[in-house]
Computed example of a mutant assay.
Amino acid sequence: MKPWHADRERLTHAQQKLSRTRRGSKRRRKAARQVGRIHHVIAERRASFLHGVSKRLASGAQYIAIEDLDLVSLTATAKGTLETPGTNVRGSGPGSTGTCWTPGWGSCGASSPTKLCGTAPF
């Protein structure tokens, strides 16, 4: 099981619960607060993970290259229909395009230079 799977299920359940409440009610405010709390937990967990990854990179690698990828072009599929699919379309594995769009990897690249400033060997 993926580590974020339980959080995603909790968030989905809380959002469904929120959508079933009446606007302006106390129950809706409680449900909205619960959804916000779950979003906060997910954000904190992601930030903690990225902090650890960038720290390991900064302390364990001599050189780090961060590539600026064009995610729109990278995850786009060739146009076509079911009968005539586009050219050069390859079946991608599960999660190959979805993992590119997960929030956080950009902030990992952004936080790495600040950690690398004091670790340069020259």
Rank of each mutant, 00 (worst) to 15 (best):
1 M>N: 10
1 M>C: 06
2 K>H: 11
3 P>N: 09
5 H>K: 13
5 H>I: 02
11 L>Q: 14
11 L>W: 11
11 L>F: 11
12 T>V: 14
14 A>V: 09
15 Q>Y: 12
16 Q>V: 11
22 R>T: 13
23 R>C: 12
24 G>A: 11
26 K>E: 08
28 R>N: 02
29 R>Y: 00
30 K>T: 06
31 A>W: 05
32 A>W: 05
34 Q>F: 06
36 G>S: 09
37 R>C: 06
37 R>Y: 05
38 I>T: 04
39 H>G: 06
42 I>C: 02
42 I>R: 00
43 A>L: 01
44 E>W: 02
45 R>D: 01
46 R>K: 04
49 F>G: 00
50 L>S: 04
55 K>Y: 10
57 L>G: 10
58 A>N: 11
58 A>K: 12
59 S>Q: 12
61 A>H: 06
63 Y>H: 12
67 E>G: 07
67 E>N: 05
73 S>H: 07
73 S>T: 05
75 T>I: 05
75 T>F: 01
76 A>P: 08
77 T>K: 07
78 A>D: 04
79 K>N: 08
79 K>S: 13
81 T>S: 15
81 T>P: 07
83 E>I: 12
83 E>K: 13
88 N>P: 00
90 R>D: 00
90 R>N: 03
91 G>P: 01
91 G>N: 01
92 S>V: 00
93 G>H: 06
93 G>E: 00
94 P>T: 00
97 T>V: 02
99 T>S: 15
103 P>N: 12
103 P>F: 15
103 P>K: 09
106 G>E: 07
106 G>M: 10
110 A>N: 13
112 S>N: 08
114 T>C: 14
115 K>F: 13
116 L>F: 13
116 L>Q: 15
119 T>W: 10
121 P>F: 09
122 F>K: 09
122 F>P: 14
